[in-house]
Structures are given as C-alpha cells and as structure tokens.
Amino acid sequence: MKKIFTLFVFLCTISIYSQTLDKEGFEIGRAQQFGAPVEAQLTKKDNVYKISFRDISFKTVDYYVDFEFKDENGNLDTLYAMIEKGFEEMPKDDIPVTFANRTVYLKFTRFVGAKVLVFSCIRSEANSEVVISNFIAKKQVDKLFGKKK
C-alpha cells in the first residue's frame, strides 16, 4: 500500500510540474543577485523568446515588463551580439531595439566601476510612463542568455 501511495504521489507531482512548464515555457536563463528578486528572465515557448525584466520604480511590489520576439534568422544571437558590442563600445546614446509588442532601449553605463546594462521601455501606448530595469552586469547578461563563460 505504501508503494502504491508513493507511486501515486510521484505521478501527480510529475503531471503538475509538466502542466506549469508548458504554460510558462522553458527557462533559458535569469539575471539575479544573491537571493534578491529576479532582475531579468529569458524564456522560450514554442518559437517565441520572451525577456521579462523587473521595474525598479516599485520598491515593495515586483512588477515585471516583458518583450517578445520570434526565433527567426538567429534573432536571439543577434540581440546578444548587440549587447556584447555595447559592453565593448559603451555608446553614450540609448540603442533602440524594436520588437513586435514594444520598443526597448538598451542603455550602457558604468556603476561602481563596472559596465552595466539597463533595459527601458514605455509601459504601454496609452500610458507614456517609462519602465526601467535595475543594473545588469555583463556576467548576469551571460547567465540571462544561457552563455557559460
């Protein structure tokens, strides 16, 4: 009886996990600092990549904004290469990147001597409020895109 109950619990756990995995998609990577809330997360579901980043304007609520793009012509690698180039060149102006659901601006700056990336975008077309991510270091960007260096 114990073996049947254990088997039943195991099968229920697997089916619940697979249902949540299908809904959310497959996580490729995340940018997170030592137990703090997730700053950014990259997931893939079907043929669509989704990057979600945390809005720093809220102190007590974790509000995430996302942008999506299809997996065509190596779009993910192109975005990663664009970010890598930004870390090398450190452009003074924000780099606009247009996706299907919004335009995201990549800002490269220095914080405590380290090169960091900041995502920013407009919350919605009806609301002109700007959403800004926290600082994301180069090492965190590598983890976000699933690059192990």
Rank of each mutant, 00 (worst) to 15 (best):
T109V: 07
T6H: 09
L11A: 14
F119D: 01
K2N: 12
S133T: 02
E72Y: 12
R123I: 13
Q19L: 14
A114D: 12
V104C: 09
R54W: 05
L42C: 06
V48Y: 00
L7V: 03
A36Q: 13
I14T: 11
R102N: 09
I95V: 14
K59P: 01
C121W: 03
R110M: 08
K3V: 09
A126P: 00
E24L: 04
Q33Y: 08
S57H: 15
V61T: 10
V116Q: 09
R30D: 02
K139Y: 06
D93G: 05
G25Q: 01
S124Y: 05
N134M: 02
K2C: 04
G86D: 07
F119K: 04
E27K: 05
K85H: 11
F53I: 01
L7G: 15
K139G: 06
K3A: 10
Y64K: 01
R30E: 07
N47G: 03
Y49A: 05
K147C: 02
S128W: 12
G113L: 07
T103Q: 11
F87N: 10
V38Y: 00
R54M: 08
K92T: 10
L79W: 05
F135A: 08
F87V: 03
T20M: 09
E89D: 08
K149H: 13
F69V: 01
S133W: 04
I28L: 08
L7E: 13
R123C: 10
E88Q: 12
L79Y: 12
G35A: 09
S18V: 00
F8G: 01
C121E: 08
D62Y: 10
S15W: 11
V97D: 07
L117C: 05
D77N: 15
D55E: 11
E89T: 11
I122P: 01
A36L: 14
R123E: 15
F26M: 03
F8P: 00
K45Y: 00
D142Q: 14
G29E: 04
F34P: 00
T43Y: 02
I136E: 07
P96N: 11
Q41F: 01
N127G: 05
V116S: 09
P96V: 07
T20I: 06
K3S: 10
V61Q: 14
F53T: 03
T43Q: 00
I95A: 06
E39D: 06
V130Y: 06
F87Y: 14
F26C: 02
V130P: 02
T98M: 09
D71Y: 08
A36F: 07
R110T: 11
F26W: 07
F69H: 07
F69P: 02
K148M: 10
V65H: 04
K143F: 05
S120R: 14
L144P: 03
F108G: 04
T13A: 15
I83R: 08
Q33R: 15
L21P: 00
G29M: 04
M1V: 05
E39I: 06
E89L: 13
D71C: 10
T103L: 06
F5L: 15
D142M: 09
Y63T: 08
